[in-house]
């Protein structure tokens, strides 16, 4: 019985750990797309964030500074995306693709310069801490490797991600700012006529999404593992994008979708560890096939914000 409980706890725990790097960019995606700007560049922003986070954490030995800088790195790419899409009416998907090339290029370019020609960083001395251990001491609160320990004794990034979902939900649906952001995404002309600055809201939203994608990258490079390498972020940003659409452009929906992807990963790791005789490669297809099946049967036509991808021109020029 205890064995089964611990197995369940292990799966829940790994699910939380692997969902976290997806939750940050997925929420970022919700925010920017709700303002009407598609951000397919989440992948590149995450990639750049993962590198900058690990590099800063390596040199300063401070994981939190690394985490913050990862966010800023993502935000800087977000700024570029905002300049292109908001100020110069760029094709949003095209600009996002450009950001993906830039993010990967910048990360590896700087990595080679700083880490002696290598496309990976060295191991960071301190990872993002486990808050329960930090607050209560190692294994004090819950017995080591017990149910509660396996589920709750997770990196601080996991707690931050869940808090982020709550905060973003609150801001989107319970504050004036959120209402304005959604208005801009649904009907920018109407929002503009009410004196809401479409320009400012969209700049803010896109930069925020970059910041969060950067944090997601660091949640991978300095929490789940302890270094950046060139294969660390391989499609996470795209999966976060899918999770956002899957979650119908809502924070709580995106969270659920991220948990499904993380859960499948957790299950895969668990079954691998237990030596279940299913080829791991076939098992790995599960979350992707499941997503398609759910989209076909359950979600159906998910409606994006009305003004998404459309160019808003105030008509001053």
């Amino acid at each position: 019985m205890e064995g089964l409980l611990n197995d369940i706890a292990f799966i829940i725990g790994t699910t939380l750990m692997y969902s976290t790097p997806l939750i940050f960019p997925a929420i970022g995606g919700v925010i920017t797309e709700r303002s009407g700007i598609i951000n397919i560049g989440l992948e590149g922003m995450m990639y750049f964030g993962a590198f900058v986070g690990a590099a800063v954490a390596y040199f300063t030995q401070d994981p939190w500074l690394g985490f913050l800088c990862a966010g800023l790195a993502g935000a800087s790419l977000g700024l570029l995306h905002a300049i292109a899409t908001v100020s110069f009416s760029a094709e949003q998907i095209v600009s996002g693709i450009a950001i993906n090339f830039l993010g990967v290029g910048l990360a590896l370019f700087i990595s080679r310069l700083v880490f002696d020609g290598a496309t990976q960083t060295l191991t960071v001395p301190n990872k993002i801490p486990l808050p329960l251990d930090f607050l209560f001491g190692d294994g004090r609160l819950f017995p080591s490797a017990g149910f509660m320990d396996l589920v709750f004794n997770r990196f601080a990034t996991v707690y931050i991600a869940f808090a982020l979902v709550l905060v973003s939900w609150f801001v989107l649906y319970r504050t004036r700012l959120g209402m304005r952001l959604r208005a801009v995404g649904e009907h920018p002309e109407a929002a503009d006529s009410l004196g809401i600055s479409v320009f400012k809201i969209r700049y803010g939203a896109v930069i925020t999404s970059g910041f969060l994608a950067g944090l997601g990258g660091a949640a991978m490079s300095i929490a789940v593992v302890s270094r950046f390498n060139n294969t660390l972020i391989s499609g996470h940003g795209f999966i976060a994008l899918a999770a956002m659409i899957f979650g119908k452009w809502k924070p709580q929906g995106a969270l659920l979708a991220c948990l499904i992807f993380g859960g499948a990963k957790g299950l895969e790791i668990f079954m691998g560890a237990k030596g279940v005789p299913i080829p791991s490669s076939l098992l790995a297809t599960l979350p992707y096939i499941l997503t398609i099946v759910i989209l076909i049967g359950w979600v159906g036509r998910s409606q994006p914000p009305a003004a998404i991808g459309k160019i808003f021109d105030k008509g001053e020029d």
Binding site: G44, A98, I99, N100, F101, L102, G103, V104, G105, L106, L108, F109, R112, T119
Partner: peptide, 8 residues
């Protein structure tokens, strides 16, 4: 990787 940056 300056090539990736240029393409971007």
């Amino acid at each position: 990787e300056v090539i990736n940056i240029m393409i971007g």
